[in-house]
């Protein structure tokens, strides 16, 4: 069963001082599925994502990537494996344009001496970057303006599309629809579906049950540092998810 997962956390522990954020928590995501990760505040969702994206190290337990146990010491190692994360702050450089943001830290350099002098393949990056945004249907209206001047929905779409363009295996989206309007939210959820269709495992952290039920295939519910349920989104409801989150409804898959 587990062989089909692209990325797994097995029995992960993490404490901050006396606070036990994760206690033997499990998580898994398949290629080409949207796995939602829900839970009340303090349930351990963010800690789980930070560990899986390499931003933090677990105290115990195991990360398994494509069937092999791995350890990550920083986010760069996760990215080298095709694991990208979009945190809520988006991490865009506001003064740069969307293409520059997409290639930030991954610039394509000109060959030979010019490249060694620091000159970049600007037109190549521009063309490939536009294609990547278009493929994902991220409607970037202005490729030449700094992203700091764009709307929240645009910035979110750019951050998600940037991560999606590099994510070969798994993409983590932390509250991608928080603080977005109705139209922009739909745009981001459509983007999530297109990323899934590329065969990438999408992990969606959200507080919005309707959004989760709309796009997710499976819903992982966390409570008090553990995964307390994995629910098939097609056969679930807001009530069931909330019940699992709050503990009013027990007895599903005990992690």
């Amino acid at each position: 069963m587990s062989a089909e997962f692209v990325y797994e956390a097995r029995g992960v522990d993490r404490s901050y001082g006396s606070v036990r954020a994760l206690e033997g928590a499990n998580f898994d995501v398949r290629p080409g599925e949207v796995a939602a990760l829900i839970g009340d505040n303090g349930a351990g969702k963010s800690t789980m994502v930070r560990i899986l994206s390499g931003a933090e190290q677990p105290d115990g337990g195991q990360l398994v990537f494509e069937g092999e146990p791995i350890t990550l010491t920083n986010p760069t190692e996760a990215r080298h494996r095709g694991v990208e994360t979009v945190f809520q702050d988006l991490a865009l450089a506001n003064h740069l344009d969307p293409i520059q943001n997409m290639y930030l830290g991954r610039e394509i350099m000109k060959p030979g001496l010019l490249g060694r002098l620091g000159f970049m393949e600007r037109s190549l990056m521009r063309a490939a970057g536009k294609r990547a945004f278009d493929d994902l249907g991220a409607t970037v209206r202005n490729y030449n303006g700094p992203v700091g001047g764009m709307s929240g929905g645009q910035r979110q779409a750019i951050a998600v599309a940037r991560a999606a363009a590099w994510a070969q295996k798994v993409i983590f989206l932390d509250e991608p629809t928080a603080a977005l309007g109705v139209v922009q939210t739909k745009g981001v959820l459509d983007l999530v579906k297109r990323i899934r269709d590329k065969g990438v495992g999408v992990v969606l952290i959200s507080h919005s049950m309707p959004h989760v039920l709309e796009v997710a295939d499976r819903v992982h519910v966390m409570r008090q540092g553990r995964r307390v349920a994995v629910v098939d989104a097609k056969q679930s409801s807001v009530e069931e998810l909330v019940g699992a989150m709050t503990g009013a409804l027990d007895g599903k898959e005990a992690a």
Partner: peptide, 17 residues
């Protein structure tokens, strides 16, 4: 968990950037 109040946003203004 309360859904975040959507920020009422004008449709993205392309001119701003």
């Amino acid at each position: 968990p309360e859904q975040k109040v959507p920020v009422s946003e004008a449709p993205a203004r392309p001119g701003l950037g």
